[in-house]
Design a protein around this nucleic acid. Structure first.
Lengths: 379, 379
DNA sequence: CAGGCTGGTGAATCCTGAT
DNA sequence: AATCAGGATTCACCAGCCT
């Protein structure tokens, strides 16, 4: 049990609505209102939530309008404020419940457009979430603005947030870098909209008005979850989140009110084939490599006490001592990291990459020695 | 007098704080707090407001680059707020005053990052503004994420809003289209950050920590104002808004509390000459080259993880992994370029033309797939 | 002079585990 | 809870200098 999970259990025990620790049923759709459905789940059981909440105030009128307000007889401005207030109430309700069911180190993604994303963003900050990034989904082929009255609305915004400021969230940095031709993945993603074969149809018409592309969920999930994690989508629609989760070996829970969406989603996920284990492995795993103390290189005679190390430009030299510390001619000393930092006047230094030694083929880094050591001792 | 201006006068007359119709003094800096300064202006006298308010960054300790130097962070007092509530109060105060001085058909631009933009967006909706677009400023050269903890924060968000829903705002559609090589201008703009000669210095150090690029203001002003319009900037700083306004033949009013910023701004605007051809070219948008990372083919399911790639003569084979890296049977791995080079013993390799996959009609290059991807998504 | 190399820098909520 | 030490981590652009 990790520290995080321990904390989690302790919190649950204290909470008024604590539930007995039962195995969470995953890979299924809860056919219910999103707040009610989430309320049926125990505290801190979800690793990641992806939410694509509605924002069409007209269609959802009943849902968002507060009790007893008169629709017809109000002034425009008042009506607008009223509607915003109702939308905010709805937003806070599901964000609150979502935060409760998130594990301490879980994260939340929300996608929206300028109609609702600012309200959602402010609300989630107020609820205690900590924003990690806002991500811009740049649509490769957006619908043009036919009337020429504004800029072509060519993007949507996603907010990625952790449960709290100090949380140790999952971010698969190397995976993202690899996916982006060995450059850091930026906050603006160019991804085509969902069309063609991928777009689900019913009787020739699109099955859902706002179906998201699988490529988007693919990147979201690959970035912020580990295989086996549980992903929840409180506005499941036709189940893009579920389909991608299954393909990527993650567990999923979908919440959706509308029966016909649920039916389409089930069929779709059924057909989404999980990738096999070997394809799932990524090139540079974030799993910690076995730690090698510098002294181990001396003990195994890969470096001898008295050997001279220097930085790549031969500005500084130091001698290796028997206990794995280094010393300079004028008496400075310390670990490979400490001395490297001291000589450069830097706050810190990675001694493994800073220090080199002379070979027939020129300078070689002690990090290469460490790699050799690992190969020999951790096959 | 336009209809808009007539409406405007009528409203002013009814308003409790109506003022005698005096000529508005423009092209000057009001050296004062932003709310106080705006309060000194009459109702409905401004055509466009560009606001770059404090972002409330909430930075922690120092941040160092991998090579040891320290990042020069924004730690100015003007960016510090105790709570979100305090920031919201400040935001609503200036938004309210800004809306009062805006002409009925005037518009407001606000720029921010994920730290503050959601609060600003929600507040301006509450104040009665009507959002027209959210615009993403994609930075061509953002600061990387040095610790590999999040996605590179590579953009900022601007909100463009009219005073009310029914307003007849200015949008120079054709100008924008011609600026964008005869394609409709999208909501994501690729513009470099302010650096080099353009960056104002004092004693060799940057004069203002958050100076915005003139290219950004150029596009904003060209899109949403007419020559002779009055543009107000309530957070003037070193006067980018004023400089661009002068060059584009717009009148400007700047509001800035800090004396030293005012001094720098005055000198700068004094020197801002009308644009010549060459500067115009610089300002013109560099249409984003759609670069396709190999990973995009996997995300869009054009290539599946586990697929086998080989060179044109079938000498080498490799398997596609989930993150866009390749791996061979005997454990060699890398990007399409790296692995191609490694296998051939060459210093470098263009993986796009080196790697192929089996089809019914024989081998096909992954470069063909890339071409298909481009064709499908960048019409 | 062209071209290459080095160094500096930009609105940044930037580590982790053991003791 | 706080402290300490190990050691992992960067992209595009510009200016200046050298070959």
């Amino acid at each position: 049990m990790t520290v995080a999970e321990k904390l989690d259990t302790e919190k649950s025990a204290k909470s008024k609505r604590s539930k007995p620790p039962v195995a969470l049923e995953t890979d299924r759709i809860l056919e219910d209102d999103c707040v009610t459905a989430m309320a049926s789940l125990p505290d801190a059981c979800i690793d990641m939530i992806f939410a694509d909440p509605p924002y069409n105030l007209q269609l959802g009128g009943d849902l968002f309008r507060p009790e007893g307000s008169m629709v017809d007889a109000v002034d425009d401005d008042w009506d607008k404020f009223d509607t915003f207030a109702a939308y905010d109430k709805f937003t806070r309700a599901w964000l609150k419940e979502a935060r409760r069911i998130l594990k301490p180190n879980g994260t939340l993604w929300v996608i929206g457009s300028y109609h609702n994303i600012f309200r959602v963003g402010a609300a989630l900050q107020d609820e205690g979430y900590w924003i990690l990034n806002d991500i811009v989904w740049r649509k490769a082929n957006p619908m043009p603005n036919f009337r020429g009255t504004r800029f072509t609305n060519a993007h949507e915004t996603m907010i990625w947030a952790s449960k709290s400021e100090k949380a140790k969230y999952t971010f698969n940095y190397k995976t993202m870098k690899s996916l982006n031709d060995e450059l850091q993945m930026r906050s603006d993603w160019l991804i085509p909209i969902c069309a063609g074969q991928e777009r689900l149809k019913e009787d020739g018409k699109k099955a859902h008005p706002t179906q998201k592309p699988e490529a988007l969920l693919y990147r979201v999930m690959l970035a912020s979850t580990k295989p086996g994690d549980v992903v929840l989508d409180p506005f499941f629609g036709t189940g893009t989140t579920g389909a991608v989760a299954r393909r990527l070996g993650r567990h999923w829970i979908g919440v959706e009110r509308e029966k016909r969406y649920c039916r389409v989603a089930r069929e779709r996920i059924e057909a989404a084939l999980p990738l096999d284990e070997s394809s799932l492995t990524i090139m540079k795993s974030n799993a910690a490599q076995p730690k090698v103390p510098f002294g181990a290189l001396i003990e195994t005679d890969m470096l001898k006490p008295g050997a001279i190390l220097m930085d790549s430009k031969r500005r500084w030299k130091a001698e290796v001592r028997i206990d794995g510390s280094l010393t300079t001619k004028n008496g400075k000393e310390g670990s490979i990291h400490k001395l490297g930092a001291l000589l450069q006047g830097a706050p810190s230094c990675n001694g493994w990459t800073f220090w080199h030694f002379e070979t027939a083929d020129g300078l070689k880094s002690i990090d290469d020695l460490r790699a050799e050591y690992r190969l020999a001792h951790f096959p």
